[in-house]
């Protein structure tokens, strides 16, 4: 595969390190809040449960052998076709903005 890094252009995927699903959001749990089932379930889902789709998948890669940017790559898991690459920080900032 070749991944078109937003900063470096298309590079062999061996330059990148894979992490996984980029649609997961880290739950925000208040410090010292009593552990309830909903919190436990949210964290369980965040750390352990995956949609694991056969098809389009938004996923995190890091260009570890290049610019070291974390990227959100949209890739089809059946065909490896890449539909888009965004800088993870931009995606994360946009996500924060919508939450605020």
């Amino acid at each position: 595969m070749r991944i078109p890094c937003c900063y470096c252009g298309a590079r062999g995927h061996e330059e990148f390190t894979y992490l996984g699903d980029a649609t997961l959001a880290r739950p925000s749990t208040e410090i010292g809040a009593p552990a309830d089932d909903a919190t436990a379930a949210a964290w369980h889902d965040y750390v352990y449960v995956r949609d694991n789709p056969s098809g389009r998948h938004r996923e995190l890669w890091q260009h570890t052998g290049g610019c070291r940017a974390w990227l959100v790559v949209t890739r089809d898991t059946r065909t490896h076709e890449i539909h888009g690459v965004e800088a993870a920080r931009d995606v994360a900032l946009a996500r924060e903005a919508t939450h605020e």
Binding site: L19, R26, A69, W70, R89, A92, L93
Partner: peptide, 8 residues
Amino acid sequence: HALQWLRP
């Protein structure tokens, strides 16, 4: 990862 993704 923390800096670019979890805590931008």
